[in-house]
Every structure is written in C-alpha cells, then in structure tokens.
Amino acid sequence: MSPTRALRRRTFRSTAVLAGIAALASTLAACSSTSHSSSGQSNFVSGTGEITTVSAADRKPAPDLSGKTVDGTQTSLAAYKGKVVVVNVWGSWCAPCRLEAPNLVKVAAADQAKGVQFLGINTRDLAAANARQFEKRFAVPYPSLYDPDGNLLLRFPKGSLNAQSIPATLVIDRQGRIAGRALKALSESELNQLIDPIAAEK
C-alpha cells in the first residue's frame, strides 16, 4: 500500500470515530434533558416558563379530578366548589418542585381567608411513601391526589390549559373553570400575581 493511500485510510477512520463520538454525546444530552427516569433521577419535564391567564368568557371547565390522596384518603376538585382552587402538579423526584414547595405552603396559608384552596397532584412517584416524605419535609398543609401514572393529567380537555410540565400550577375559578396556568416553579410573588386577580372576581 502506498504511503498516500495509508494516510487517507487513517484520516477516514479518525473522522468516522469523531463523528460517532459526537453522535453519542448528542444522544446522551437529549436523553438527560427531557424527563426523569424510572430510577428516580432528579431530571424533570421542563416547562416553557409561561404564565397564562384566560378571560372569563373564554374559560373551559376543569375536568373531574378525584381519587385517593398521598395519605390514603379520598378527595376531589368538586369538594371545593365555590372556591378558587390552585392545583399544583409535582413529584418528590423533581428539583424545581422542591424549590417552589415553601412558596406554595406560605401562599396557601395566607390565601385561606380569600376563599382559596390548594390541591396537589403528585405524579410519577411510583412509591407513595416518597410523596408522603416530601409533604412531611415541607409541612404541606393541603391534600394531594396520588397519580403515579399521570391518568388525572390526561383528563384535561383538548384545547384547554393543561399541565404540560412538572411542576405546573393551574388556577380554577369559583365556577370550576380553568382560569390560569404556570409552566414553571413559582416564587411567592408570581403565585400572588397569578391567584389574586382570579380570587378577586365576584
């Protein structure tokens, strides 16, 4: 084999190896950035960061959200008819959920006098014990429906505001309609900005 041909072959092999390494790195990056794994890693379903509100005339009814809670009792969205209900979707495995939990707890306590009720939906926690430990750690005072398979989240009607990320927060008005949504972890200030106008409606 001539020196020129041998050099070309080595160059081709080096280029192929580098291309393969780049493709593998790209695949691993995509896998790690989409959602959490079943092994309980702290990856999460990233939201867009949008906070959306809907005028009263354009709101759609919230679906039936009911079932067993994290602590084994029963509750439902319908149980809070006539109140503004803040529905927070969370998982104990979700780092942004842990970040916003103290803010939710503070605002939930402060907004009781305004006729506002908080209701969680715990999702993708295959062991309810993990969810209970989360609630104990952050002293969560409101119930959370236990939805490990995400079935409750699929009940939101097509075209309505729905939970497209974890965490996500939805605000249901006193008529049982979806009035607002946040696809991000919220600060106390952001929670108040989302909830207060809806709570002030007559």
Rank of each mutant, 00 (worst) to 15 (best):
R155V: 10
I51F: 02
I178C: 01
E50Y: 07
S189D: 11
F118N: 01
E188W: 04
S33T: 15
E201S: 06
T73M: 03
L153E: 04
L183G: 10
S42E: 12
K184Q: 13
G180E: 00
Q164N: 11
L7F: 08
L191C: 05
V140I: 11
P61M: 06
S42T: 15
G120Y: 05
I178F: 02
A200F: 12
S144K: 01
A113N: 13
A19I: 07
K81Y: 09
T169E: 01
T169G: 03
L7M: 13
K68V: 14
S39F: 15
P141Q: 06
R8Q: 12
H36R: 10
N88S: 11
K60H: 10
A113C: 14
T53E: 03
L77D: 00
N103T: 06
G176W: 04
L18N: 10
N162A: 12
Q74L: 04
G115P: 11
P141R: 02
F134R: 03
A179E: 00
A163P: 06
L153P: 03
T11H: 09
S92H: 07
V171R: 02
N162H: 12
S160A: 11
A199V: 01
R181V: 09
P148Y: 09
D71M: 03
V87C: 08
A57Y: 05
R13E: 09
S38A: 13
S39M: 11
A139K: 02
R13G: 10
L154K: 14
S55W: 01
S33F: 12
R5H: 10
N122Q: 03
A23Y: 03
K158C: 07
S92N: 11
A22F: 04
R181Q: 09
W93R: 10
S14T: 14
T53C: 05
T48R: 03
S39E: 08
K114R: 15
A101K: 00
N162P: 00
S144T: 10
L152T: 09
A182P: 02
P167K: 04
P148N: 14
S165G: 12
S37N: 13
A139I: 00
V17D: 03
A56Y: 00
L191K: 03
G40R: 07
R98D: 09
S66W: 07
T4Q: 14
W93M: 12
V87S: 05
L186V: 09
T169C: 01
K83E: 12
R10A: 13
D71G: 04
L170R: 01
A19H: 03
F118S: 03
A57G: 11
F44W: 11
T69A: 08
C97F: 04
A79M: 04
A200V: 00
L28K: 08
P96M: 05
I166F: 00
Q117C: 07
Q117M: 09
E135K: 01
Q175V: 14
G49P: 11
S39Q: 10
R177A: 13
N192V: 08
V84I: 13
R59W: 02
D111N: 14
A129S: 14
S37L: 15
A19N: 06
I172K: 00
G159A: 08
